[in-house]
Design a protein around this nucleic acid. Structure first.
Lengths: 313, 313
DNA sequence: TATAGCTGTTGCCGAAACGGCATCAACATG
DNA sequence: CATGTTGATGCCGTTTCGGCAACAGCTATA
């Protein structure tokens, strides 16, 4: 089912690989064929699409415009294919997800497992990145669904849902703080703290609050892995900060305790956004999974708010 | 700039004309070429796209799916072209509008004239239809912007804006009713009435109300042209019904008087919707005109509500 | 500084795709 | 039944495409 000019797919491959020869290898054709199609495209558009650097090709402004068009075409072709397939009863394809680390502990594995149980023919590709990288991957068409901290998102993305979860302190079960129900930042800073590095968005949530306190904190550990921070907290090394999303299983063992953070009487929220490319209609199987994802995150948000009642948003 | 497989454009032409030979004439190619491209497409999709009737071709279900994809591709190609053009300072293209008759008296001509004054290179195509035909033309990709009574719209359309205007009676300046400020349906039915035929949406707005009154109305005139109805009212033939949008110039001559309709103490609203295809990004020049259109209709809605104050929606 | 390895481009040539012409059978209309 | 129109097909010249090999330009390494 390849009724689009080869030039389209060649251009797409060159854009992704940044090189004509690499694209040719990817497409199993001669590099000369790819080169010629690109030259022909540039001639028809009337403007160069790539800047030829000595070490590969970079998109020009016009090239980026064409890339956007080509992405729209290829993604919509994908949707068309899935529509035709689902008409004849077949229901298969690959859902590609880019998300931040908080989801990997329980939300995503639970969802994917349950979805695969019902729709065996749907495959998944997931890539864990930082929040801004998630949005970028989405923009570049390298993922279908993105889950990231709800920062300002570029206009070519659409925020499908926005769920907020309470940021809290995570400590071992025998930690002194574990006796309380909630905890303030000042209380935490009395103990060794496991800080997030700036590449994690938790850093940007907490740093302004810590700066306000202007206390000299205890010598602390810094890390860029939520997983690592959690495991450190479980070993009693110190107090880590994150949402409850990431500590589902461990807290069930009561090795870890989650204590909602209290900042001058009000909770500290961590906003999670679900994103898709705006100029796009998702294939049916992707849309279906997206609905489940939104529902599940909404459910967790609801459950958590019930567990730690507080003034609502 | 034709970097899409000829099959795409041939298919599009065949879908629009409903005939291979007609499409061939339209494209200035031999009919055999068109026929073969369609056959090739069907072979690659793995399913027939058209039903061959003796007198032309009709889309199958799969064919309609492909039509949707092809429309997305071609419309997005248009947008890409306009993006490239606007990059080099050129700003031209054609805005295609489908709308109901109410707009033709002043809203649309005013807007188009003023827009053309500023952007000389933008052309316009406008087609006046019934409300449901407007939506259908939009769905089929025969227009970029649709203005129609806000009925339930198909999911492939997006309602950009919803403006409501008061339905009123339109009578000549020397009509007995013209002395009042507003008017009830019962008052109107005491005089000869110019009724809208069912093909006009005014019919569907008024019919339920008239049915409630269950009075035997005066022998009336029926028409399917808002223009004609207005001119009849201006000649004192009877009472016509429409929104104030359509009587701008004539009422300035005080040949016509607009009297907001009062139904059991509350106004009768006529909802006007502005629509575009959902799966689509508009070219810059079309988007620009769309913004002006929404702004202008919002302005008229505001002015009118100020002129005839009433409980807001 | 010479060499090896990479890049994109180009000339040449066979293969595949495309389009035009004439023709066919099927069907509708008069 | 005759006529006109429909889409499909065989034949053939033209165009396009892709593979091979060679080229110039550049970088990194020895």
């Amino acid at each position: 089912m390849r009724f689009h000019s080869p030039a389209i797919q060649y251009f797409h491959a060159v854009r992704r690989t940044g090189s004509i020869r690499a694209a040719a290898r990817l497409l199993n054709v001669a590099s000369s064929a790819v080169s010629r199609q690109i030259l022909k495209l540039e001639q028809e558009v009337g403007s160069p699409l790539f800047e030829r650097n000595a070490r590969g090709l970079t998109l020009t402004t016009v090239g980026e415009m064409l890339a956007r068009h080509v992405m729209n075409v290829l993604q919509d072709l994908d949707r068309f294919r899935s529509d035709v397939a689902s008409l004849s009863g077949t229901w298969h394809g690959t859902v590609s997800i880019a998300c931040i680390e908080s989801l990997t502990e329980s939300v995503l594995p639970d969802l994917i497992a349950s979805h695969r149980g019902r729709a065996r023919r749907v495959s998944f590709t997931t890539e864990v990145k930082g929040s801004s990288d998630v949005l970028e991957a989405l923009s570049r068409g390298e993922a279908d669904i993105g889950i990231a901290m709800a920062l300002r998102h570029p206009p070519d993305l659409r925020q499908v849902a926005l769920k907020r979860f309470r940021l809290g302190a995570v400590v071992a079960g025998d930690h002194p703080l574990a006796r309380g129900k909630t905890v303030t930042l000042t209380q935490c800073l009395a103990f060794p703290v496991i800080h997030a590095l700036p590449e994690l968005s938790i850093y940007h949530l907490l740093q302004p609050l810590i700066a306000q306190l202007s206390e000299t904190p205890e010598p602390a550990i810094q890390a860029n892995s939520i997983d690592l921070m959690r495991e450190l907290a479980a070993r009693g090394v110190g107090v880590a900060f994150q949402t409850q999303l990431g500590i589902g299983r461990l807290s069930r063992d009561s090795r870890l305790v989650f204590l909602p953070l209290d900042n001058a009487g009000s909770p500290v929220w961590s906003d999670l956004g679900i994103y898709v490319r705006a100029e796009r209609t998702l294939p049916a199987y992707t849309e279906s999974f997206l609905q489940e994802l939104v529902r599940e995150l909404g459910e967790r948000e609801r459950r958590e708010n019930a567990a730690y009642p507080q003034v609502a948003r």
